[in-house]
Design a protein around this nucleic acid. Sequence first.
DNA 1: TAAACCATGTGTATCTTATACACGTCCGAG
DNA 2: CTCGGACGTGTATAAGATACACATGGTTTA
Lengths: 263, 263
Amino acid sequence: MSQDPPAPTSGLQRLWRLDAPPRGGRPTLSVRRVVAAAVELADAEGIGAVSMGRVAEQLGFTTMALYRHVAGKDELLELMSDAAVGEPPPTDGAAPWRARAHSWSLAMLRRVREHPWITEVPFSTPPLGPHRVRWMEAGLRALRGCALDAEQKLAVINTLNGIVWHEVSLEWQQARARDRAGRDPAGAFADYGRALASVAAPERFPELAALVADGVFGEPDAAPGPAGPAPVQDFDDPLVAFAVDRFLDGVELLLERQGGGAG
Amino acid sequence: MSQDPPAPTSGLQRLWRLDAPPRGGRPTLSVRRVVAAAVELADAEGIGAVSMGRVAEQLGFTTMALYRHVAGKDELLELMSDAAVGEPPPTDGAAPWRARAHSWSLAMLRRVREHPWITEVPFSTPPLGPHRVRWMEAGLRALRGCALDAEQKLAVINTLNGIVWHEVSLEWQQARARDRAGRDPAGAFADYGRALASVAAPERFPELAALVADGVFGEPDAAPGPAGPAPVQDFDDPLVAFAVDRFLDGVELLLERQGGGAG
DNA sequence: TAAACCATGTGTATCTTATACACGTCCGAG
DNA sequence: CTCGGACGTGTATAAGATACACATGGTTTA
């Protein structure tokens, strides 16, 4: 009755106490290992493949063993996505805020791309995990010296986050559509461009049709082969970079208008 | 063999053919009705509540009846989210692109807010439904007369989308956290602010702690009552508006730099 | 050192859901 | 009038989450 008052936040606590020393005895399983296995599984086969059973199997334990370490699947998902974003990179104290914000965004982009399934996890909670919180802190630190008020800073990092997540989410969906087409040549279009083309009648969707014709979604004359391996484009960021840069330009502009210079 | 070649895209087709005339005879159930019922359910109780069974019950049919009209739950979800975004508002031909883009974003924001569960639907496909596509078209139309190239226009509307969705997603998560706290006063924090406060130790998270202290996440001295009904803030958009405006400012700036004026 | 404890795993049972299949029915076409 | 197909129904199956009660071995306590 002394060491652990049930505390109103078991969930949150678990989120932050991954390292609680193994309490009773043999430290075979652990939250860390469970989460790690789950993340690995998701990386390999998507969140769809993450079931309590599969994770347990991966670890060589029974399904129910997991419940000794996580409250349930929801909590596991929360832990997974927090773990997957991992640690933010250090903030370059010398760089101006603009450059720091930019690289913070790109770092996040890369991280999320490594675990694209994060974008599919149905979050039930706003970001409260230790890693997420550390990214927030890092983002705010990046904006130090920028003359925005607290609310605006928060809006800035939220927006950057939104841009990045949305982008990865789209990439991911397209990639999936692509390889669904690979597996089942009859069931889906080889790529988003072709699908859009089939659907965007030029009379009703002139603008869209023009984009498609422009090849913005991929060359329309790319081999329509039954199930080409689809050369995984690795546009390393032009699209996101565009968005991030425009947004940050806008923020800079605001600062200039407001105060004349950077605080 | 004349009216409906099986076509490689039954899914896509169903997405676009909601109005196919009732083929055989009595038009009791229909894709429309199924989707409508599902949307209603999701609006009322969240996507979590949407199961084939519940939807069927809602309509007074058996679960299996639904399968005559949709291929399965995934397709239903796709149809639902397309239906939920609905029709984009008309484009104001007279307004400048900037204003049009702005109101397009706000229209989308409002729409998504009406059906916040959309942000939780695990998309397996890039946007191909008729409504989604119409929103894209509308977005592009809004950008007509703006001297961006095709790719950039696409990036702009994607970004605006990302900003909006991410925002709604956050609002939604916070709202849920809030009323989870209401239901189970011990299980979660009354609000995000308090939760963050409990977690963001000032020594390790100075920036964040400052924000929290600033009351950016809600006043820290708000009654910590066991389950206050939590005055649902209705910031109609200041945060999103900030993001959208900054971004569009950035785009304008780019155009000025590029060409001197708007095409 | 012996006894009690408790954290950890296990096995089994249950409940919810999605979905395959086969059957009956009623409509309109020939 | 009869046949075929669209539409609903009912039943069966399988996956998955999770509650519960029990076994076990190290830790702690008397």
